[in-house]
Design a protein around this nucleic acid. Sequence first.
DNA 1: CGCCCCGTTGACCAGTATCAATCGAAGTGG
DNA 2: CCACTTCGATTGATACTGGTCAACGGGGCG
Lengths: 224, 224
Amino acid sequence: MQEKTLAKLEQEGESFSLSECDLLVREGQPGDENFTVVEGTLMLYKSLPGGRRQVVGFRFPGELVTLRRCGSTWPVSVSAITPCNVNRLPCQAFQDLVESDRDVCQTLLDLASDEIAARQEQLLTVGRKNTVERIAAFILEIWHRTQRWPAQNDEVLLPMNRAAIADYLGLKTETVSRAFARLVHEDILALPRPSHVVLLDRPALEGLAEGRRSLFDEGLTRRA
Amino acid sequence: MQEKTLAKLEQEGESFSLSECDLLVREGQPGDENFTVVEGTLMLYKSLPGGRRQVVGFRFPGELVTLRRCGSTWPVSVSAITPCNVNRLPCQAFQDLVESDRDVCQTLLDLASDEIAARQEQLLTVGRKNTVERIAAFILEIWHRTQRWPAQNDEVLLPMNRAAIADYLGLKTETVSRAFARLVHEDILALPRPSHVVLLDRPALEGLAEGRRSLFDEGLTRRA
DNA sequence: CGCCCCGTTGACCAGTATCAATCGAAGTGG
DNA sequence: CCACTTCGATTGATACTGGTCAACGGGGCG
């Protein structure tokens, strides 16, 4: 259903490619266009003076970049964190499709609901979890979203670097490194390369991500 | 337009009231209903073990509580922070209205876009601003949203207590108090009562909220 | 009148940021 | 092919913001 809707959007639009680090749109910029990702990974973020940056989402193949009110300015910047193929659809054509096809409209409302729920979840992570819990939640999120064909394996390839992870989780890169190091030390993860994560103990990782479990539950009690 | 759409929703639904602190729905609960606020203020939040809580939004009169995928469970809890009148509309009736009326569908997509942008903004605030900047942004947000009739006055009545503010901003109540105290000390705000904020220097407050200005730009440099 | 809750303030602590150095892999040029 | 450069990741030492714990104050209500 979502696939079909996105396919409808894409057959009306035109496709083009982006190199790694290319900026697709800049925060505050006008522009009545919608985009979908065909190939690669995009990053959505907002900036603050002093080089502060908050990543508010990643977009993988098959996803709509963002729902936008026609005539509005972009609330975020979007840039490619890998080489990408992106499909562009003018806002008006998008609008027409919504009005002519009720399935499209319903699907978009569902996608919007999912996106809102995802941002609420990210808020919980950024606002109320500690460093290790944030990293655990992050790895599991990317794992879920990139397991397109349920190949029940326990590996994740992170397309984003440590700076992007840090800015997604409201941390600094050094802090991200240390959290990874702790998870590796506890034998919950392995990191053959910085972008290659192997899940050694998924239940433990899930416990951390949901704040049920602490790295000190056992193991650092003096006389255990 | 949005008002007209919400009115359509409300005339189909049934209205009822909530007392302060009543729980409207609990996170994870099933329930195919949509709600709008007629009177009062609602709070949306998510919980974590250990009593940790993240508020992900407030709802004022005339607002839809949240867009929901039909058949899904609630991703958040909703409770009344003041006495409220709320309108309930079964998901199916909501669905029917969306399908029969393209204006409704378009308006809902616009509302969803706004909500997504608002959560992105909150993420920036929680992830990348310091205590004072968060409070400044918060006060201005509530000020904007409660100035329904552009009575160009500089007063805000906060319907939520310090705990709700803290949980919205990823802080503790003591920290919220201290930030208010600093803003009062700098003559940017006055606080006749804890819930009654008077904006004495809106430009300064906006500068802080956007991270352009620091409380130390002048005033705490040793020899100024 | 007194209790209780919420907000405020103070003293101290801890987790994360900051600053700095090092490591390692990938790319470049001799 | 190998030295050199570069950039991202990692690790260590220290600083600082916000959290924790505790006490106090004021207003509302029984």
